[in-house]
């Protein structure tokens, strides 16, 4: 039963990547983009961990502060903000490979987006899934994690499209809006963290839903900009 649950979660995590790959033009010679995406994700993750280990205090110091709730909240949000700034490295990571990618615009963007999310699924989700979903205790969080990975595919594809536009350097005014838009996508985890603490929303399903809404919003804006400027 538990192994079956692991299979269920794994399918929900990985199958959409494969379906999108197979259904889109990426499957017609776009696979190097996926490989680039995975490699770039791995390198960026390493750099991010390095920076986080340097700038963020170890976990233990935050638990000490938990006696004072407002102080704890402030430290928590500050930490999340630092994490968000560090997550800005993602832009650099995607920027480095977006021009090495092969194929048409769509193949580049979707390929890199898929590769990036595949990298995340492999490096950050596979082990927790393997360790957790096979456990005897049933928890919804593994299903939620799989659903989150689906939402993130959309997030990374729209992110890749923004970086692509940015690398084309079409117009100064566009560059400014692109920067704001990219900052929005990167800071989605930070926004959610703020909502969590400020409004006291801790239910995991609600948070997942907020995440979905934010990502869909970001994706719509990105798509609009892409349609307008990519020609």
């Amino acid at each position: 039963m538990t192994f079956l649950h692991f299979v269920t979660c794994a399918v929900l995590t990985y199958a959409p990547t494969w379906v999108i790959y197979k259904s889109s033009e990426v499957s017609e010679g776009g696979y190097p983009n996926i490989v680039y995406g995975v490699i770039a994700y791995a390198l960026t993750l390493f750099a991010k961990l390095l920076l986080m280990a340097t700038f963020l205090p170890p976990e233990t110091t935050t638990t000490v502060a938990s006696s004072d709730s407002t102080l704890h909240l402030r430290i928590n949000l500050v930490q999340e903000f630092v994490k968000t700034v560090i997550a800005g490295l993602d832009i650099l990571g995607v920027y480095m490979i977006i021009n090495k990618a092969v194929g048409r615009n769509v193949v580049k963007i979707v390929g890199i987006g898929l590769g990036w999310s595949l990298g995340e699924n492999l490096l950050s989700r596979l082990i927790p899934l393997w360790m957790g979903a096979r456990g005897l205790e049933f928890e919804w969080k593994h299903i939620q994690m799989a659903l989150l990975s689906n939402i993130n595919i959309l997030l990374y594809i729209s992110f890749a499209s923004l970086v692509y536009l940015y690398s084309r350097k079409i117009a100064d005014s566009l560059t400014r809006t692109l920067r704001i838009q990219m900052a929005f996508l990167i800071s989605i985890p930070f926004i959610i963290e703020c909502i969590k603490h400020l409004f006291g929303v801790y239910d995991s399903w609600t948070i997942l839903f907020i995440h979905l809404v934010l990502v869909v919003l970001g994706a719509f804006i990105s798509y609009g900009m892409h349609v307008k400027y990519s020609k």
């Binding site: 039963m1 538990t2 079956l4 649950h5 399918v11 199958a15 379906v19 005897l136 205790e137």
Partner: peptide
């Protein structure tokens, strides 16, 4: 441990396949 019956997962497959 809190566990789900086996057909819980089997039922989950329906929406997953539909979604794909």
């Amino acid at each position: 441990y809190k566990v789900k019956p086996i057909w819980f997962d089997l039922l989950l497959w329906l929406p997953i396949v539909g979604y794909l």
